[in-house]
Nucleic acid binder design. Structure first.
Length: 306
DNA sequence: AGATGATCCTGTATGC
DNA sequence: TGCATACAGGATCATC
């Protein structure tokens, strides 16, 4: 499932290709993948427009569009793909939107489950940091959460790799929370871009049980958590993301982080640290992978480490 | 207010 | 063998 590293990889592959790509027309196969405006307006507005690059904020891919500044916002959700293709490349199944470019190339949005969404915004309608991440020029005023469109885009927490995301900030966000730490880390308002895979991996690396109440984490655990979130995200970006079944980059290539995952998808297999079996449980309604020996359910022992 | 559960969607895996 | 059901999950909405 595309999380921050996967979306970042798509961004990196598309950015140089879309620096000056004029859209000839937009083929709309499934109207319901367009979140805003309505599908007809969306297609009409983009025909004749020009992509000028690619940015990212959290799991949102941001394609700046001229004239504008406007931004095509894409959320791939679980199985969405945004892939650039030559005119002769066969069309993959479940293709919902095709941007035909003037030079003959095609930018295709495909999604088996049709959970992914495309949105078109004026840059000035977006929060300033989102417009800036899009590279659409910090055109200014923040509109309140979009009435239609994607509210999540308007309430994103800090980027995990930014300086702003540190132990003090995370500690403040965890204080008093009884929800499982995993649920809090999945909340995009707390930190932007983590999903099920990298939350499980970061908690394993930090030696923290996913079901621990968030407010019970000791300060050194919070520090470890920040460090491990950053390290696993950084490594996954380097490895161009994790491909378990669907994810591919902007050229249709898989990522190579999969074999480096320590717990996700490894239930029953030996823990890489202690050789005990990796378990799969349910936390916050999500399939959750952990090593119960390396990630004790209670705090004991933790302050000795570090 | 904050947390939990249902919902969307379909391919894949499991169960009988 | 074949069919039915469960499951996967990001974000949103309704309901405790």
């Amino acid at each position: 499932m595309p999380e921050l590293p996967e979306v970042e990889t798509v961004r990196r592959t598309l950015a140089p290709e879309l620096e000056a790509a004029v859209v000839r027309r937009v083929d709309m196969r499934s109207r319901d993948v367009v979140g805003r405006p309505d599908a007809e307006t969306f297609a009409a507005e983009l025909a004749g427009s020009r992509f000028t690059g690619a940015g990212r904020r959290g799991k949102y891919l941001l394609l700046p569009v001229a004239p504008g500044p406007r931004v095509l916002v894409v959320h791939l959700r679980m199985t969405g793909r945004l892939v650039l293709a030559g005119p002769e490349d066969p069309e993959p199944p479940h293709t919902h939107v095709v941007f035909q470019l003037e030079d003959g190339r095609l930018l295709r949005f495909a999604d088996v489950r049709r959970f992914g969404r495309l949105y078109l915004y004026e840059a000035r309608e977006l929060p300033a940091d989102v417009a800036e991440a899009a590279g659409a020029g910090a055109s200014g005023r923040t509109a309140a959460a979009g009435p239609d469109g994607s509210p999540g885009l308007f309430t994103l927490g800090p980027e995990p790799l930014s300086r702003r995301f540190d132990a003090r900030l995370l500690g403040e966000r965890l204080r008093g929370r009884k929800a499982p730490i995993k649920a809090v880390l999945l909340d995009q308002r707390v930190v932007a871009g983590l999903g099920n895979i990298y939350v499980d991996e970061a908690l394993f690396r930090a030696g923290i049980h996913p079901a621990r109440p968030a407010g019970d984490l000791a300060p050194d655990e919070t520090r470890r958590l920040v460090r491990e979130i950053r390290s696993v995200i950084r490594q996954a970006v380097e490895r161009r993301g994790t491909t378990l079944s669907d994810y591919v980059d902007g050229y249709g290539r898989p990522g190579s982080m999969g074999p480096h995952l320590a717990v996700y998808g490894r239930s029953g297999e030996p823990c890489r640290r202690c050789r005990g079996p990796v378990e799969k449980i349910r936390v916050a309604g999500r399939g959750t992978h952990l090593c119960p020996r390396c990630q004790p359910a209670r705090r004991e022992g933790h302050w000795k480490v570090n």
